[in-house]
Write a protein that binds this DNA or RNA. Structure first.
Lengths: 69, 69
DNA sequence: GAAAACTAGGGTAATTCGGGGT
DNA sequence: AGTGTCCGAATTACCCTAGTTT
């Protein structure tokens, strides 16, 4: 079909992330709004989350924080 | 400044774009019909999308599309 | 020419959004 | 401060069949 290797960053849906953290999807949305989790928006306004970032969070990997003293 | 002779714009299939956004191919079609994403039609009526535009959209770059069906 | 995979189109259920209140 | 739940509205996902692409 297409011979061009498109860089694909696997994205997760809100419910996917919610299931991984055992919380409500609404809570994941709040994390995104609070800037604790980066989110990518679909053209319709729905949020998608980076699987790699979520995995790091689940593994207790500290995220990049601005001015951490 | 920079002249592009024959711009060989890479085109993506609906499923390609759908994978990048983590949505259904049908959703990408909806975006094209809504004018949120410019589409190029094949002679048979299938849609193709500009990779550069899709990447900009994924990066949160707002697009300016006057009219597109 | 033929087969397999993908896409278009319509309709309905599930998910998500945003705000408000516990 | 943080989370789960309710409401209404919008967006998205899955069902099917026919046509297009490779």
């Amino acid at each position: 079909m297409n011979a061009h290797p498109v860089e694909t960053e696997t994205l997760l849906t809100p419910s996917e992330v919610a299931t991984l953290f055992r919380v409500d999807p609404k809570t994941v949305t709040r994390w995104a709004k609070a800037g604790k989790l980066s989110s990518i928006r679909t053209l319709g306004g729905h949020r998608r989350y980076r699987e790699s970032e979520v995995r790091d969070l689940l593994n207790g990997v500290p995220q990049q924080r601005p001015s951490d003293g």
